[in-house]
Design a protein around this nucleic acid. Structure first.
Lengths: 130, 130
DNA sequence: GCAGATGTGTTATAAAAATAGCATATGGCT
DNA sequence: AGCCATATGCTATTTTTATAACACATCTGC
């Protein structure tokens, strides 16, 4: 099994990369905005640079400023994270994840809801993955 | 939004706690077995102790030895992790996660498969969550 | 009842991570 | 042209993490 990309990042690094995945791309200033707790701009920049050195992140120089983005494609990271989560918390059971996703109120899944699943899945598939 | 429990753990700590979630409960020796790379028994024990001090893990003294388990209920950690993953990689879209789970071969979802989802969900719900 | 395997308690230390300061460059605005 | 806000480049330092050694306790089989 391919080891998750995950595991090589430190706490802060993970936090930053996650922000980049959410935003797709962001400047140091934007990343800083999204950080919990207060971290100096300088610190964030340093982390981004280190992340780049380690090969986890890249930047495009846009005019003057750097716009950072994760080097690993979102779809790849996604699958990796999903696999890890399913293994760790759901005994490798896809069904259990689906159940957890749908039963977020802790309640039962009605027939109507099942019908909705079909629609959701079909729709998501149509959208095509970036 | 409640911040994920996740974020407070270091890399190794996260790795260890994940092992505990997979196994539900484990001795230091068992945790060591599951660790990637080789880490000494002593190291693992130290980490477990630190995790316990920090309140992430607890142990039951069973006869002589300690059996460790995560302090945060699996179901809670689960939901938290799932939420974080959905937000980070799936734009908060439950549908997209379901699609990713089902389309693991990158292919389309057939009607048969949709029928299977219904079964899976119903089954998972029956099992009831621990 | 003793030797060896398997545990725990405690403490030390090297390595890595997190944080941030200072110097300098650029772009826009008046 | 000069100033200010916003950037980057480089470097230093503190804090945290990760690792493991050593000492002592308990159980097990002979």
């Amino acid at each position: 099994m391919a080891k998750s990309l995950h595991s090589k990042l430190t706490r802060r690094e993970r936090q930053i990369v996650d922000i980049l995945y959410r935003r797709r791309r962001a400047t140091a200033a934007q990343v800083m905005e999204d950080m919990v707790g207060d971290v100096s701009y300088s610190t964030v920049r340093t982390q981004l640079r280190v992340l780049e050195e380690k090969g986890h992140v890249r930047h495009d120089a846009e005019g003057l400023r750097y716009v950072y983005s994760p080097k690993v494609p979102r779809s790849t990271a996604r699958r990796s994270a999903l696999t890890h989560l399913v293994d760790t918390f759901f005994d490798g059971s896809t069904e259990k994840v689906v159940a957890a996703l749908l039963g977020s109120d802790g309640g039962q899944v009605s027939d109507d809801e099942l019908a909705r699943i079909a629609d959701m899945v079909a729709k998501a598939q149509d959208e095509g993955e970036q």
